[in-house]
Design a protein around this nucleic acid. Sequence first.
DNA 1: CTTGACCTTCCCATGATGGGAAGGTAAAGA
DNA 2: TCTTTACCTTCCCATCATGGGAAGGTCAAG
Lengths: 130, 130
Amino acid sequence: MNISQAAAASGVSAKMIRHYEAIGLVQKPRRSSANYRVYGEADVHVLRFVRAARELGFSMGQIGELLDLWRDRRRPSRKVKALVTAHLRELERRIAELQAMKSTLEQLAHHCHGDDRPDCPILERLGGGA
Amino acid sequence: MNISQAAAASGVSAKMIRHYEAIGLVQKPRRSSANYRVYGEADVHVLRFVRAARELGFSMGQIGELLDLWRDRRRPSRKVKALVTAHLRELERRIAELQAMKSTLEQLAHHCHGDDRPDCPILERLGGGA
DNA sequence: CTTGACCTTCCCATGATGGGAAGGTAAAGA
DNA sequence: TCTTTACCTTCCCATCATGGGAAGGTCAAG
């Protein structure tokens, strides 16, 4: 498989496949005589793993750890769970942060007329009004 | 006021004050004879506005628009509200995205033993098991 | 006059992703 | 066989908001 075929098969763009290789997340594939990257099913499997992990919001560093655990058939599932739990805490933190912004903005927007008049509690608040 | 004093007074780092100036978000302040930036209360007020908007998650582009509206005493509050509403939609989108990740991970983590055994639904799922 | 704490500009890094240029190669049609 | 098209390679740049740090100038206090 060429890189674009591996991209199509894995759902990871060719650009990102090269990038993952550059940062050492995935192994360097062997090269054809013309220096083309050559991929097999196993490589595509790894790429799909990476994509699935990205979709769940894991960072590249965490994905590296997950890949190591995945490849290690003797891993204790405790390690996997710990990693996932840490990520969950982070997700909760970010959700709470966004929720706080949302609540504040909803309050302010609720009290803004939204018509031709210039007065608006949103600007007043941003301008130090609270 | 020097830049570090303006930074302390506004809560925006000196580094970011220079950056905001470079991207045209805030006006260039006048310079002292030694080429030092000199700030007044009005500048600090603007910087505080920017900081407050950042804390509510607005992008720099949106903050530029908000600043324009803030400075325009004839603005229709409709424009402010529209901008805020658009940002709220974006916040909701991001929250939903993170919530989806969180739910999935919670499900998976719930079914992972988290002990010395190697089998783990999290890795199975990432590895294409679903 | 020295020292320490400022200031200036400039470059680099983050994290994940994409755009695009310049140059080489493979496969299909004429 | 030649040409075209579609792909490959590496390399640089951009995003967005933020910070680190170097090299060199300036100010205030001891």
